[in-house]
Nucleic acid binder design. Sequence first.
DNA 1: TAGTGGTCTAGACCACCTG
DNA 2: AGGTGGTCTAGACCACTAC
Lengths: 250, 250
Amino acid sequence: MNQVIDAGALAPLYKEVKRLLTASIAEGEWQAGAALPSETRLAQRFSVSIGTVRKAIDELVAERIVVRHQGRGTFVASHGANRLMFHFFHVVPRGERTREYPDTETLAFRRARAEPAEAATLRLAAGEPVYRIRNLLSLAGRPVMLDDLVLPQALYPDLTEKVFSSRDNTIYHLYQTRYGVNVLRTSERLSAALADAETAGLLGLRKGAPLLEINRVALSYHHAPVELRRSLVDTSEHEYLSDLGRANAG
Amino acid sequence: MNQVIDAGALAPLYKEVKRLLTASIAEGEWQAGAALPSETRLAQRFSVSIGTVRKAIDELVAERIVVRHQGRGTFVASHGANRLMFHFFHVVPRGERTREYPDTETLAFRRARAEPAEAATLRLAAGEPVYRIRNLLSLAGRPVMLDDLVLPQALYPDLTEKVFSSRDNTIYHLYQTRYGVNVLRTSERLSAALADAETAGLLGLRKGAPLLEINRVALSYHHAPVELRRSLVDTSEHEYLSDLGRANAG
DNA sequence: TAGTGGTCTAGACCACCTG
DNA sequence: AGGTGGTCTAGACCACTAC
């Protein structure tokens, strides 16, 4: 019951434990989907009590960096396997909450240089090499969404169109498994736009049809940006649901 | 250190404490902005340990039902006073995160009957009395957003246009202080639309200009819907930021 | 100085999952 | 049966706020 010496730490102990855990995950000591050591072992490793480890893990769970399973262990969050797959996909049929997984078709895959604005958002120097990828997403067999991705080549060294389009899971799962890039959070800015001729053609609309434009930045550990994505959505039969991935409430 | 008898409870004790606290807040035992009893006192009141009370309050904090201030106490969340005012306002100038508070003008205030779809969402019988309110919101002196509100009259008994438009704070603050209706969470569905002649005129746009349409349901305790709101936003110089009110990340 | 929430410990028992 | 996370307790000290 006695207080242990805190060694003059400025930050709470559990924050330090959290920082060390996050660093180990980011460095790959435990890969996505792998189990962390048990709470007892972690407590020994960091010379703190279990309660402190639990509080650190509580925050990692809240940030979706890890997932707890009672009786089994604590695991590094993964983009595959579970329903978390849908965590970053907000487009649903009008009035519903149920999502189906979209069919995606890769329309273009190019190597290019970052525009100044892109470079700034991706924290690159202007002109650094990027991939530009265009995807067409279909729901229930009908095209609904046109995605333009910008990826720093440095993060995804050997990415090719073949690798990209022959993935058997989500794009973020590909980043995670092949490049160790773990998308934790996205920041999205939405606005309304009108379809130009090209976009209208791809989505089967008339030129000038209203589109929902979503500008997304995908973020990894330490808020590092790892992907830029502009989506144009035909919302005539679908909507963007803002509060997925949220929970509860009293 | 010995285990106390749990009396065969099915739910965890702290969930029960949380439920009791939420109920007391919803019933008005502690008004918005008021301090809860100290953790020690609450522990005595519910015959549990402080740790259990803390865990219950942790969840209430996460759901923004209460706010903790070290050294001062724990308070029922309020819509006034603090920056929480902006919690439900997602429209920002393009590329920025800073928000200014919008000027609002009440264009219409009518008593009417709920349409079937509205009634269903508000959990009313079709035809129940509602208010229909139209607001024009301006940022930096220019109209940006047109809001159409639908409110059950039963929840806001004596609401009049004068009361509504002479409020000196946010609309949700009015609900809270005058009617004890506390908006905790909103659910929003976004889509793109084209401005009709009337809307275009009000927002200073051409007919057919693209607009961001936001359909919002405001929810109180126990997920009770307390307001419907459709917003039409001119996004030529503003955007909808999806991740306000979120925090941290490793 | 007194009271509040914030952190941390130490250990108990329970529920769940895997062998 | 053994290990894991989930809950709960009891009490210590710290940091902050009010008076």
